[in-house]
């Protein structure tokens, strides 16, 4: 791993891009789990199968 203090502008930009992509991925995953939980709860608990 390169020393952050010695990173060039290109390396910094690439790292920032990777970090933003990872953060977005994690946020999407959390939202997805939340929405899936709501949908499954609605189907199985709020409206239980007869």
């Amino acid at each position: 791993m390169s020393d952050p203090a010695r990173e060039t502008e290109v390396e910094l930009k690439a790292r920032r891009g990777r970090n933003i992509a990872l953060a977005l991925g994690l946020v999407i995953f959390v939202v997805l789990i939340f929405v899936v939980t709501l949908v499954r709860l609605r189907g199985n608990v709020i409206q239980p199968p007869l």
């Binding site: 290109v10 390396e11 690439a14 790292r15 891009g17 990777r18 992509a21």
Partner: peptide, 9 residues
Amino acid sequence: HAPARWQDY
């Protein structure tokens, strides 16, 4: 080489 960009992943 150039550092990995998110597009590489």
